[in-house]
Design a protein around this nucleic acid. Structure first.
Length: 423
RNA sequence: GGAGGAAUGGCAGAGUGGUCGAAUGCGGCAGUCUUGAAAACUGUUGAGGGUCACACCUCCGGGGGUUCGAAUCCCUCUUCCUCCGCCA
């Protein structure tokens, strides 16, 4: 959520920024500003009436104390009309505030100036690529075939137990998964992130805190009996640690990492793109998350990108980094880098990480602040990224490391898996 | 799951209808004193809205209600504690 103060002070920059997202926000911003004006006016009216009422109450109290009950009762009668008026004003204030809030919820984050203009993923800007795409022979298999051949992932069993999109990892497949999780977490901890184990279900307030609610309600699994939601990403419980928190400036920066399963309904997804591990209802992910001083957040973003890079270098997978264009940029993000690994057998790129700076967009909604040197409370910047999403990394490993002898385990993982080859 | 009790400022802890945004203690900050520090003393110390700045308004777990007036009374939800039951 954008700060109303920013819109008030810097209306044109906001409109220009949103134009990049192909949004003509002028009318929306104008309604926001006029509603804001109305809200403040209503607030002032309410406050004045309330102040009057408070004066009456005080006076009545004093009259009762000094035994002048009849005088007090006369005053009491005077308050009835005022009371009615207060009720009306309060209702109007609530309505206006809510209306304003709803409009603000509709406005996406203002893209950073370096976000390239564009309408869809075609316009994303490749900023880096690394690793050779192996020249596989014609017998190269896509990962779902490899999974079957080596009996390491059982999609049908998942269908039986739960439904489509809930694969079962078996034997070396399961151990490879566990190895990846441990390896990612160890890398993150070594880079200074504090490891957390977070709840996999969250309440409504947390859903609102990170913006999954009310907009994307249909994307989450909802446990209606207890009104809890299965997390679609560790970002939700991880970021809500900081809901309604005032930090000391010296607490910053904060870095957190955690492994969680992620649950996504993916309503409306189908076809070849959801084949195998490409798109699942349940998958594993290790997340990194930072809370930063506004002056440092873009340095932090670069650090995060470099960190994820180093993981992919160690895994020796062919990958590229994209700077998302304005049309592909997420609602809450000001700047996002996507990491994609090349799926050699499918001949397509698979997104395995997305690293974003939200600036104050999340913290404004969360009320995540820090006390600066002058004792002022200011909104902190939040960032997060995957390091990494497991299924597509696994797909990348299976496909890129395959040979007639089996699937070689990337060297860095061998200490974790305890085996060098999947045969 | 059942029965009781509780939730107040960074922490501890008073306050059971009327100048209570809230006593007191601890902690934090500033000052006096000191070569420096400690101790002692003095002052200060929550958040949001609003204003050029004041004024003013809101907030005592969340939501709703009663009342001229609510931290205080009522309803409801949540969380914590004690006891019973169940259980990895």
């Amino acid at each position: 959520m954008l700060q109303i103060a920013r819109i008030r002070a810097d209306k044109e920059t906001v409109i220009q920024g949103l134009k990049k997202r192909n949004i003509n926000a002028k009318d929306l911003i104008d309604s926001v500003l006029s509603l804001d004006e109305k809200r403040r006016q209503t607030q002032a009216n309410f406050d004045n009436s309330k102040a009057e009422m408070n004066r009456y109450s005080k006076e009545i109290g004093q009259l009762f104390k000094s035994g002048e009950a009849s005088k007090a009762n006369i005053l009491k009668e005077k308050t009835t009309q005022l009371k009615e008026q207060l009720k009306v004003l309060e209702q109007s204030l609530t309505e206006t505030t809510n209306e304003l809030q709803e409009l603000l919820y509709q406005i996406p984050n203002v893209p950073n100036v370096i976000v390239p203009e564009g309408s869809n993923e075609e316009d994303n800007e490749e900023v880096f690529s690394s690793g050779d795409i192996p020249d596989l022979d014609s017998e190269a298999l896509p990962h779902w075939e490899l999974a079957k051949k080596y009996d390491i992932i059982d999609f049908e069993l998942g269908n039986k137990i739960t439904g489509a999109g809930f694969p079962v990892y078996k034997g070396q497949g399961a151990r490879l998964q566990r190895a990846l999780i441990s390896y990612f977490l160890d890398k993150n901890v070594a880079a200074g992130y504090t490891e957390y184990q977070l709840p996999h279900l969250v309440n409504e307030a947390s859903g609102f805190g990170t913006g999954q609610l009310p907009d994307k309600e249909g994307q989450m699994y909802h446990v209606t009996a207890d009104n809890l939601y299965l997390i679609p990403t560790a970002e939700v419980p991880g970021t809500n640690i900081f809901r309604n928190v005032v930090l000391n400036e010296s607490d910053l920066p904060i870095g957190i990492t955690g492994y969680t399963p992620c649950f996504r309904r993916e309503a409306g997804s189908y076809g070849a793109h959801v084949r195998g591990l490409n798109r699942l209802h349940q998958f594993d992910k290790v997340e990194i998350l930072r809370v930063e001083h506004p002056e440092r957040s873009y340095t932090a973003l670069d650090e995060m990108v470099d960190h994820v890079k180093s993981i992919l270098e160690e895994l020796k997978l062919p990958y590229r980094i994209l700077r998302l264009c304005s049309g592909d940029l997420g609602f809450t993000s000001a700047l996002t880098y996507d990491f994609e690994v090349y799926s050699t057998a499918q001949k397509r790129w698979l997104e395995i990480s997305s690293v974003s700076n939200f600036e104050t967009f999340q913290s404004n909604r969360l009320k995540l602040r820090f006390k600066d040197a002058d004792g002022q409370n200011k909104l902190a910047h939040t960032l997060n990224g995957s390091s990494l999403a497991l299924p597509r990394v696994l797909a990348g490993i299976l496909e890129n490391y395959q040979s007639s002898e089996g699937i070689e385990v990337p060297e860095v993982l061998r200490a974790y898996t305890g085996f060098d080859f999947i045969k």
